[in-house]
Design a protein around this nucleic acid. Structure first.
Lengths: 197, 197
DNA sequence: TTGGAAAACTAACGAGTGTTAGTTAGTTTT
DNA sequence: AAAACTAACTAACACTCGTTAGTTTTCCAA
């Protein structure tokens, strides 16, 4: 299993979390057992409980951690930029940067939040809806500026976010396209589409 | 549980499959037990095996069934249309029609195929990649015609398919937007983007 | 060197998993 | 009437699951 010089500078908790996320991305949250995680960090399942409260803590910390990163990003964008096209571009950059930072965490954030317990899931959905609203407001602003077409803002926002979130499915850190370039291409594609003229 | 006049005209197998898909969309494939399915059709878990071979058969039949529907659709489009913009539009319509037909099946197709056994998963990925290639070829054709921009075809295709597949997450049959309208808006969005000019 | 916290261990609990075996009642076919 | 088939049942197998309790080992500050 993963052993590197970076490893030794991490707390045991960070090692467990990182390994767990890696397994969960590969096999899915439900399919990854505490015994799987334990054996990947060379200990017994019971010993994990000296470092984390339980299995769900992994999911909770990851989902809400990434949620916060995204919220901070969109708030910065809203503080700095005023024009919708610029805002959208920077929001896309911020979103892609956050998602490509840790693909394992992104997988939990995009796919596995469904398995949060009822109350946590409700909280998560609330924050996700709020984030979605920030994007929608940019689309609406663009229309009010006269720069964007008169599209259904909800539809457009969901379509945009779908494209952004799917990047985690095909992006490879060692590949030829880097996060910044992906964000640029996405921005261009979303703003002006596939067709000439 | 679901009992209707349609129900009586279905074979027991169809009832089981339909109920299973509904549960699996709500709770996830791994989280749905044979006992859950059984009790939803008022029988014991063991009795299910008189009608289906096992749990995975539900996933296999659903994923490969929808795969075939999509393949037939794209082949028809390729047979009938010659111009890339038209092909893309019709391919989008076909895709959206197939996905919105049965949202429960779509959920398994988009999200739960990961839990297919190794060999079946390999087969599934192969067919999915082939379908993806059909889309990519349309994008390439559009460039060769001089109608589409010089985008990275792989990137564009993945972005397009992400938008299409995500429709299953927010489309509601009783909502105001119907599949045909969704397909039209998606086509327009993908072809000409958000920005004016 | 030593006291005590931190972090590992073993063992087990109670619940749940997909699936199989064997059986039975009711219906259809021969 | 006999045989075969269908679809349900009960019971159980052989695991796996997350988690807890109690115990032992490790390791660092005093």
């Amino acid at each position: 299993m993963l052993v590197s010089f970076v490893f030794v500078t991490m707390t045991r908790r960070q090692q467990i979390m990182g390994t767990a996320l890696c397994l969960m991305r590969k096999k899915g949250y439900l399919n990854t057992s505490m015994r799987d995680i334990a054996s990947s960090v060379n200990m017994e399942a019971a010993s994990l409980y000296n470092h984390i409260k339980g299995k769900e803590e992994i999911l909770i910390d990851t989902c809400f951690g990434l949620a916060e990163t995204l919220e901070i990003g969109i708030n910065e964008v809203n503080d700095i930029y005023f024009n919708a096209a610029e805002k959208l571009s920077m929001a896309i950059h911020s979103h892609i940067k956050a998602l490509t930072q840790d693909l394992n965490a992104s997988h939990l954030f995009v796919h596995e939040w469904r398995h949060l317990s009822d109350d946590k899931r409700a909280q998560f959905i609330e924050r996700r809806d709020l984030y979605e609203k920030e994007f929608r407001d940019i689309v609406i602003l663009g229309f009010e500026e006269g720069e964007f077409k008169d599209v259904d803002p909800k539809f457009a926002t969901l379509t945009i976010l779908a494209s952004l979130n799917w990047v985690g499915e095909w992006y490879r850190p060692q590949g030829e396209m880097q996060p910044k370039e992906i964000a640029e291409k996405l921005t261009h594609f979303i703003l002006s589409g596939l067709q000439k003229n």
